[in-house]
Amino acid sequence: MIFLQVAAKDLRSELRTKESLNASLSFAVVILLLFSFAFDPSGEAVAEFSGGLLWLVFAFAGALILNRSFARELPNDCLEVLIASPVSGAQLFLGKSVASFVLLLAIELICLPIFGIFYNITWTPKFWPLLGIFLLGTWGMTILGTLFSALTVNLSLRELMLPMLLYPMMIPALMSAMRLTTILLSGNDIGGDDLVWLRLLIGFDVVFTTLALALVETILVR
């Protein structure tokens, strides 16, 4: 379980510096606040776009967390030392993904009640199914984002390149997560035809986790 040690190291580093955590959380809260001025939070239509709004905020805030995933290893050439260690590229990648996943999920869980207050949305009755969607959507975003973080780590424009690569690839998972979140925040249950979105989200996670674990060694050793 070496990947858990890599994840613990990343989380400890981040909790000491709070570089991406502070930036991501404040960015997410500001976006939620600004959108609450743009739309009428008391309107009935809010529930219709609630899933889309939430996941756009998560995707923007997530890019700030994911950008740091491999960039954290650049000072003092720590990435070279990690790659030269006996830890496989897949374990290293999985550890970094788990750390980013925990950080991003924490941001999402802080944002959810803030979103509820700003937009007058009752989310508590559907918390557990919502958490399930958050877990699946966040894992998809994290696994793909960490892969692109490894790919762009040596680029000078990596802060720009990561979102440019990530968002188009994330469309199937984002669409699914947005749709399912909207259903739940509207007070309905997921069932019937909507299950196809759940299957798509699970399929996305499985396919990209497998691909990323298979490709990451080639990306790290050039």
Partner: peptide, 12 residues
Amino acid sequence: LLGHGIGVYDEL
């Protein structure tokens, strides 16, 4: 391996 960088984390 002892490369150009020291390969340790400043914040730890």
